[in-house]
């Protein structure tokens, strides 16, 4: 088994299995994330949201899962790079003319590009919220590395909802978030059902269900995420 499992993970099929597995793990995280976000719709001046955000920031189990989440993201990215590098060698001489649109969807061929856009978005997103939250929580250490918590983030610890409103008052940031979510939508649209195919789950009875579940999941998750910067920017949520 030990010999077998290492050859499994090194094989092209095993690598896709890891992509699917980490992908579905990240997909499950998005559900948690969007539920926390949706707490702003209690419209209670961020009280419920702050409670949920506080739980996420301080609960020890969540902190452990957070490490797993970062490992999952890193594994997904590293595996994608390994697969892409292997794939780029598979066709050294390109076609002069290639009509790919008739046989496959553009987003299924652009997972690497969409993933790169998502990574760029993720860096912006972490810099907007995750880093300031950690700095606010462990603020004294922040001065040590010469980082000054920017205006609006100082209250991240006590009132993350206020910090949220500050970030989404900026139309440029709202636009970046919406573009990031468009990338996420198409990445999920292919990724969700693709993971099941990589696991070997393709059946005439269940695959149509998995595909429509993937579509509705991608659409709903992205619309819910998008609603947050939009409603806060327009001041619909107090």
């Amino acid at each position: 088994m030990s010999n077998s499992s290492s050859s499994f993970l090194k094989s092209s099929l095993g690598k896709k299995f890891i992509m699917g597995f980490t992908g579905l793990f990240l997909i499950s995280f998005l559900v948690v994330h969007v539920c926390i976000n949706a707490c702003i719709y209690f419209n209670d001046n961020g009280e419920t949201f702050n409670m949920a955000a506080g739980f996420m920031a301080n609960n020890i189990i969540i902190k452990v899962v957070e490490v797993g989440l970062f490992l999952g993201i890193i594994a997904h990215i590293v595996q994608a790079l390994v697969i892409s590098m292997h794939n780029s060698k598979a066709r050294p001489q390109k076609y002069a003319v290639q009509n790919q649109a008739v046989s496959s969807k553009w987003y299924s061929r652009s997972m690497g590009l969409l993933g790169t856009l998502l990574l760029m978005f993720l860096i912006v997103h972490l810099a907007n919220f995750w880093v300031p939250t950690k700095l606010a929580l462990y603020g004294e250490n922040a001065k040590f590395v010469g980082y000054n918590v920017p205006d609006g983030f100082a209250g991240m610890k006590e009132n993350p909802f206020e910090a949220l409103k500050t970030v989404f008052a900026n139309p440029i940031i709202v636009t970046v978030y919406l573009l990031g979510l468009v990338s996420l939508f198409y990445h999920l649209l292919h990724g969700f059902q693709s993971a099941f195919q990589s696991f070997g789950l393709n059946h005439k009875n269940y695959t149509p269900f998995i595909k429509s579940l993937g579509f509705w999941y991608s659409l709903l998750i992205c619309l819910l995420f998008a609603s947050m910067p939009i409603t806060l920017f327009l001041g619909l949520i107090k």
Binding site: S12, K16, V102, S103, R109
Partner: peptide, 24 residues
């Protein structure tokens, strides 16, 4: 196991489930 190992050794790329192969 042997056929997949040979497929990888021949330098074919990996499947990204675009389903273009099925169409063509």
């Amino acid at each position: 196991k042997n056929m997949v190992a040979q497929m990888d050794a021949e330098g074919f790329g990996s499947c990204t489930n675009t389903s273009a192969c099925e169409v063509e």
